[in-house]
Design a binder for these strands. Structure first.
Length: 435
RNA sequence: GGAGGGGUUCCCGAGUGGCCAAAGGGAUCAGACUGUAAAUCUGACGCGCAAGCUUCGGUGGUUCAAAUCCACCCCCCUCCA
């Protein structure tokens, strides 16, 4: 596949080559110099994550796992949470100005992101233990005048407006950019210079949309610290069909199990298109490129359903939610998709609820199917509920239901009180008869 | 402060007095086919069982009738100062 690595022992030490073999390198700032820089010593590598919500989503896993890969190769990862930059909003490749969130909200999100960032990294492994930092720490007390003089002076507006990341925004009809967002690059650049000073951090990684901000930081670090630092960008995950990655019918796939259950998370990966799955394995798992290629070869030769999606789903779910989360997810999946729903015992059904299958109670009498579909959010209006019924899209305990006057009662419940509601092919909900 | 251009249903974007719940595309959802794929085809896509009701930045107004006209207000963009 690639001529420079007929010796796999050697190549595993070359983290850049390793990433390249996984199609994970978009751009390198420093090129060969960066490779030898990384080959000669353990380096501090940083990646920033801004609090734009109370949880990270799966898009953040690529850079986060990349930090982990650097750590496994002997380098020191620095996960930065953007308590400061999150206050400003990164304009890179965004087509419109974003609304600012209050500082209370942002600091709350920062706190929620910290454990998510931490879970993938090792903070107790000696020299190259990970570090978690918040850029608010070195910006909040910096006064405006000093900042403009010390930092701002190093930036040429001429160069800043040439950056591809903001260019389209500046040229876009009907949109503009505020000075606030325009300044984002300066803040992120300053982070790099600051981390270079504090931790001797010499490498920054990020999504390919971060190229402008990373090179800005490289320039600034050279000017402020007279130090040579490097950067690498990772691919933004895209899907072969052009639709947005990381969304499902129920919305964004979050890392927070309270927002996206391990089951829903697992199902998301299981639904990966064949055209994407091998690439995603390279991005999201620690299987070697060789192993992944082997799986692809086997799948292609088998002529039946590929194994890859299942492997991917298991690996990523375990990474994000641990062994327990994975067990719960597969238990639900098996019960709903391959088992006979009617043979589930009361314990099984209870376990499904504990495992995180969406669940709600149904009032004992006068519980019509239409109301229940809406109440359980399987349909978002009565009208849609009726439509689903008419389309043969609804089943209860494995039985197709098409009549809008279907009633729930102890007689047609499983174990006297449970209902497994299904809308469409993949959406399930557990109903419990109340009272 | 001045001049001009805009704000339409999730997104893009038509619509300039009735035929508009509002073209078209995208996204999404369901069904068929399948592998809990892809592609394709069919259907749905404000709410309501229905009669009908509520929408086109906001508030008032003109009119038998407004997303479309008028007034004021809010927000965005461009250029000038």
């Amino acid at each position: 596949m690639n001529s420079s690595n007929n010796n796999s022992e050697e190549s595993s030490k070359d983290i850049i080559a390793d990433l390249q073999s996984r199609n994970m390198v978009v751009q390198l700032a420093g090129g060969d110099e960066l490779k030898s820089h990384l080959a000669t010593d353990s380096r501090a590598v940083y990646c920033g994550f801004d609090p734009t919500a109370s949880s990270l989503h799966i898009g953040s896993m690529v850079p986060l796992l990349a930090l982990k890969r650097f750590q496994m190769a002997g380098h020191k990862p620095i996960a930065l949470v953007g308590g400061a930059t999150g206050m400003i909003g990164d304009p890179s490749f965004k087509d419109s100005e974003r609304k600012l969130n209050s500082s209370d909200v942002i600091s709350d999100w920062v706190e929620q992101l910290k454990p998510q960032l931490s879970q993938f990294l090792d903070f107790d492994c000696g020299e190259n233990s990970a570090v978690l930092v918040n850029n608010l720490d070195w910006t909040k007390d910096y006064d405006v005048l000093s900042f403009l003089r010390d930092v701002g002076k190093h930036f040429a507006v001429n160069a800043m407006i040439q950056k591809e990341s903001v260019k389209q925004r500046l040229e876009r009809e009907g949109e503009g950019i505020s000075f606030t967002e325009f300044s984002y690059m300066i803040l992120q650049s300053f982070d790099f210079a600051e981390l270079n000073k504090r931790y001797d951090c010499t490498v920054q990684i990020g999504g390919s949309d971060q190229w402008g901000n990373i090179t800005g930081g490289i320039d600034l670090t050279r000017r402020m610290n007279q130090a040579q630092v490097y950067g690498a960008t990772l691919p933004l995950v895209t899907k072969s069909d052009g639709t947005k990655f990381g969304k499902s019918e129920s919305g964004t796939i979050w890392l927070d199990p309270n927002r996206t259950s391990p089951y829903a998370f697992y199902q998301f990966w299981l639904g990966t298109a064949d055209a994407d799955v091998y690439n995603f394995m390279k991005y999201f798992t620690f299987l070697s490129a060789h192993e992944i290629d082997a799986i692809e070869t086997t799948d292609k030769a088998s002529g039946t359903k590929p194994e890859a999606q299942g492997i991917l789903a298991r690996h990523v779910t375990e990474l994000a939610h641990g062994e327990q989360g994975l067990t719960a997810a597969t238990r639900i999946s098996e019960a709903l998709f391959s088992g006979d729903i009617n043979s589930l015992t009361g314990d099984d059904l209870q376990q499904l609820e504990l495992d995180g299958l969406p669940c709600s109670s149904i009032a004992a009498d006068s519980a019509g199917i239409v109301e229940v579909l809406v109440a359980t959010e399987l349909a978002k209006s009565n009208k849609m509920a009726r439509e689903f019924l008419g389309n043969n899209a609804v089943s209860v305990n494995g039985q197709l239901v098409t009549e809008p006057d279907f009633q729930f009662s102890a007689e047609n419940a499983l174990q006297g009180r449970y209902f497994v509601l299904k809308r469409g092919k993949k959406l399930f909900h557990l109903g419990k008869l109340a009272g």
